[in-house]
Structures are given as C-alpha cells and as structure tokens.
C-alpha cells in the first residue's frame, strides 16, 4: 500500500470533524472521496499533509513510513505528497514560472526538475505561453492548471486534490481531468475529494463516501455509481 490511513480522528475546537476514518490507496490508483459540504473531506486531506493536528490513536503510513513523524513541509519534500488546496491558493504576487519553481524549493535533482517542467508545459501549453505573468492575472481554468502543475512539481508520488472541478465550466473540467489522467500515467497516484460526485466517480477507479466525519460506503466507481443510496444522495436521484 502506498498510503494507509487508520482511525484518523481530527477535532477543531473540541468538535470532532473526523471520527476514525480508515482507507488505503495503492500505487498508481485514482481514488476519490465524495461527500456533502462539511462531511470532512478537506480535513482528511489536511490531516494527510499534516496541516491540522490529528488525535491520539491515529495511524498514517506512506510507503511504510510513519507520516506523523514528518512536518508539513517535509511531507512534501521528503515523501512526495503534494496537495492542491481548496480554492487553489496560488501566490498571486508571483509569476507563473515562480509559482512552479517555488514548488521545487527543497528539490536538488536539477535535471529532473527541468524534465518535469517541460512535462507540465506539454500538458498545459497555456502556462508556458503566460509564464512571465503574475498568476493573479490568470482565469479560473488557468489557475487550476497552475495549481495542479505546481503540485506535480513539488512531489509526484501522490497528489491530493481538494475540489479540483470547483468553479470550472464543464468543458474545462473535462480537459482538466484528462490532464490529471496524463499525470497519473507519469506515475502520480491521485486522491481527490469532490462534491461533484458523478464527475469524480467517472474519473476515479474507486471511491469512498464520507458522511459527517465517517466513511459509510466504499467500492469501485461502477458499484458506487449504481448504488441506489449514492444515486439518491449524491447523483441527484
């Protein structure tokens, strides 16, 4: 298993957001977690990237390493876990090129960085055209491309994507998922959380359903798409 999460519990101000979540992701997989707003999807990703403290009893391992031994920046630089946060959170005062370069801050493999950069520009030619521009000037779709490209540059073993489809027109959404498939072929395992359940399940190979801080269902995408409960609650009947 690439990533294994056991009994993940997180609280904010004494209110428990995750009540012991268990799941596993194998190398090369595309997995999604679907759920309503406030179900704890973002919190799950934040816990993996060590941006929120977890409670006693939580176990998380990545490539057989104890994830809890790593600080947030080391999770990225030493383990290769990258995280595209909700709302993309680009550095609007930096250029597109600088946003991509900053993501390689701790990397020493100069040749590979160059290759990766070329790969990002292959997949997102718009970014190369506009690389000297401030990222704050990009359209929503371009911003999402940059956020994904940036995550790919920082560490490519696994990419955690928080609502990547949010705010994108349907056509842009499709091309973004195509690009993610490309990056997946390059060796990036993908874990995404989405409110847009249909889109996410069509893209991922399997999924989990998160409800009020607990995983209630899991299965292959086909199974979940055909599941009457999922249909009712998340796919609009």
């Amino acid at each position: 298993m690439l990533l294994s999460v056991k009994n993940l519990r997180v609280s904010y101000d004494n209110i428990r957001a995750l009540h012991g979540v268990d799941f596993q992701i194998g190398e090369g997989e595309i997995v999604c977690i679907i759920g309503a707003n406030g179900a704890g999807k973002s919190t799950t990703l934040r816990a993996i990237s060590r941006m929120v403290p977890v409670e006693e009893g939580t176990e998380m391992t990545f490539m057989d390493q104890d994830l809890l031994q790593y600080s947030a920046d080391k999770v990225v630089s030493k383990l290769g876990i990258s995280h595209v946060p909700e709302g993309r959170r680009l550095f609007g005062n930096l250029t597109i090129m600088e946003n991509l370069k900053l993501a390689t801050f701790a990397r020493k493999d100069k040749e590979k960085i160059k290759e990766d950069l070329e790969r990002v520009f292959d997949i997102f030619p718009r970014l190369e055209e506009r690389k000297p521009q401030k990222s704050g000037t990009l359209s929503g779709g371009e911003q999402q491309m940059l956020a994904i490209g940036r995550a790919f540059m920082s560490g490519r073993k696994i990419m955690l994507l928080d609502e990547p489809s949010m705010g994108l027109a349907p056509l842009l959404m499709l091309s973004m998922f195509d690009a993610l498939k490309e990056l997946n072929k390059e060796g990036a395992t993908i874990l995404l959380v989405e409110q847009n359940a249909r889109m996410a399940l069509q893209f991922a190979q399997r999924g989990y359903v998160l409800e009020s801080g607990s995983l209630v269902l899991e299965g292959s995408s086909e199974e979940l798409l055909a599941n009457p409960e999922v249909k009712n609650a998340y796919l609009g009947g």
């Binding site: 990237s49 941006m51 600080s71 947030a72 920046d73 080391k74 990225v76 630089s77 990258s82 995280h83 946060p85 959170r89 550095f91 609007g92 005062n93 930096l94 900053l102 993501a103 390689t104 801050f105 701790a106 990397r107 940036r150 920082s154 560490g155």
Partner: peptide
C-alpha cells in the same frame, strides 16, 4: 507575504 499558510505545501520550511 502573500499567503503564509499555503507555503509549507510547497515543501518550504517556513
């Protein structure tokens, strides 16, 4: 200076 909280996600030790 722009967005303090996201910087660790870039692998930068803040």
């Amino acid at each position: 200076a722009f967005d303090y909280v996201v910087v660790p996600l870039m692998g930068v030790p803040i």
